[in-house]
Simulated assay, not measured.
Amino acid sequence: MPARRKAAAVATLGLAPLALTALTAAPSSAHGSMGDPVSRVSQCYAEGPESPRSDACKAAVAAGGTQALYDWNGIRIGDANGRHQELIPDGKLCSANNDEFKGLDLARTDWPATAVSSGSYTFKYRVTAPHKGTFKVYVTKPGYDPSQPLAWDDLDLADPVATATDPAPVGGFYTFSGTLPERSGKHLLYAVWQRSDSPEAFYSCSDVTFGGGNSEESGTENAGGTDASPAPTASAPSEEQIDAGTDKSTVENHGHGDNDAGTSAEPAAAANQPKAAGATENLAETGGDSSTPYIAVAGAAALALGSAALFASVRRRAVGGGRTGR
């Protein structure tokens, strides 16, 4: 085979697998958790997985270990497809029936809480890989008892306090408005983010205190009936804290993971390495969406087709040259 034909064949064969890899890649997994009012898992992560300050977060770590907190943005069901009540039993709503996060299901009155008031509220959902979908936030009914395991019947499912479809991610957050009803004392907000480009859904529990006071003023007894230290005011993790824990996370905090919350498309440490200068920003910061993988697919396909055309052109010239030389 002449050198030119051989080079063209090598180039085409080398590019084809890359194009096929892109063409067979499915849209990847999103990640996130409620940032305001801060979710239980985000609050405990902000306190520090290895040495949390609040009694509730200490108990959560004792029950489920520290990994759940490093994986704060991975409470999910990959094939939910709207079947939330079917797949998540009573008492396991905050963990989404995932044993890794079972510490978040502990029935306690001293979970750190965000002070809220009835009326309009701006929700902020911390997202580390944005995708199309719908958010619904539910509040517990009057008479909710935080010392009992959270059940679906505890939530006012008929009247979500917020619903938002495809809000634009800005600065790492999906921001949308809702209205909190008249309540008093400790309550819980349950957020469900159901993707529309995948059956995957994400879940989070946020403890709140109605009445304008902070949660330190409402600390009572824990689920065991013994005196507990007052619940501290909840606070979301900072960007520095999120970045500091990425090497211990099993989900990709700055990019798109796969369809398994317990694994990532590549080792977490590698997936979360700082980008080289000039590299594309995190999609959560730039407002990218699920169309991004398809742009890459189109580019790879075009590259493969162009290489094939080049090979055919070189082959024709080589064949023509051979005939001329006869």
Results as ranks from 00 to 15, higher is better:
residue 89 P to K: 05
residue 89 P to D: 01
residue 90 D to T: 01
residue 90 D to C: 05
residue 90 D to P: 08
residue 90 D to K: 02
residue 91 G to H: 01
residue 91 G to C: 02
residue 91 G to F: 02
residue 92 K to T: 04
residue 92 K to R: 11
residue 92 K to Y: 08
residue 93 L to S: 01
residue 93 L to C: 02
residue 93 L to K: 01
residue 94 C to D: 05
residue 94 C to T: 06
residue 94 C to E: 01
residue 95 S to H: 03
residue 95 S to Y: 02
residue 96 A to V: 05
residue 96 A to T: 02
residue 97 N to D: 11
residue 97 N to M: 08
residue 97 N to H: 07
residue 97 N to S: 11
residue 97 N to Q: 12
residue 98 N to H: 13
residue 98 N to T: 14
residue 98 N to C: 10
residue 99 D to V: 14
residue 99 D to L: 14
residue 99 D to I: 15
residue 100 E to I: 13
residue 100 E to T: 15
residue 100 E to Q: 15
residue 100 E to C: 01
residue 100 E to F: 13
residue 101 F to H: 11
residue 101 F to T: 14
residue 101 F to I: 13
residue 102 K to R: 15
residue 102 K to D: 13
residue 102 K to S: 15
residue 103 G to C: 05
residue 103 G to D: 09
residue 103 G to P: 01
residue 104 L to K: 05
residue 105 D to H: 03
residue 105 D to K: 01
residue 106 L to D: 07
residue 106 L to Q: 10
residue 108 R to W: 07
residue 108 R to L: 09
residue 108 R to G: 02
residue 108 R to V: 06
residue 108 R to C: 04
residue 109 T to I: 09
residue 109 T to M: 14
residue 109 T to G: 15
residue 110 D to K: 11
residue 110 D to A: 10
residue 110 D to C: 12
residue 110 D to I: 13
residue 110 D to V: 15
residue 111 W to T: 03
residue 111 W to A: 03
residue 111 W to H: 03
residue 111 W to N: 03
residue 111 W to L: 00
residue 112 P to Y: 00
residue 112 P to V: 06
residue 112 P to G: 04
residue 112 P to W: 00
residue 112 P to Q: 04
residue 113 A to K: 10
residue 113 A to F: 09
residue 113 A to R: 07
residue 113 A to P: 04
residue 114 T to Y: 10
residue 114 T to N: 09
residue 114 T to S: 12
residue 114 T to L: 07
residue 115 A to L: 04
residue 115 A to G: 13
residue 115 A to R: 12
residue 116 V to E: 09
residue 116 V to D: 07
residue 116 V to H: 07
residue 116 V to M: 06
residue 116 V to N: 07
residue 116 V to L: 04
residue 116 V to R: 12
residue 117 S to L: 13
residue 117 S to A: 14
residue 117 S to Y: 05
residue 118 S to A: 14
residue 118 S to R: 08
residue 119 G to D: 00
residue 120 S to G: 14
residue 121 Y to H: 09
residue 121 Y to D: 09
residue 122 T to S: 13
residue 122 T to Y: 05
residue 122 T to I: 03
residue 123 F to S: 03
residue 123 F to K: 01
residue 123 F to N: 07
residue 124 K to V: 03
residue 125 Y to L: 09
residue 125 Y to M: 11
residue 125 Y to T: 07
residue 126 R to P: 03
residue 126 R to I: 12
residue 126 R to W: 10
residue 126 R to K: 14
residue 126 R to Y: 13
residue 127 V to C: 12
residue 127 V to I: 15
residue 128 T to Q: 13
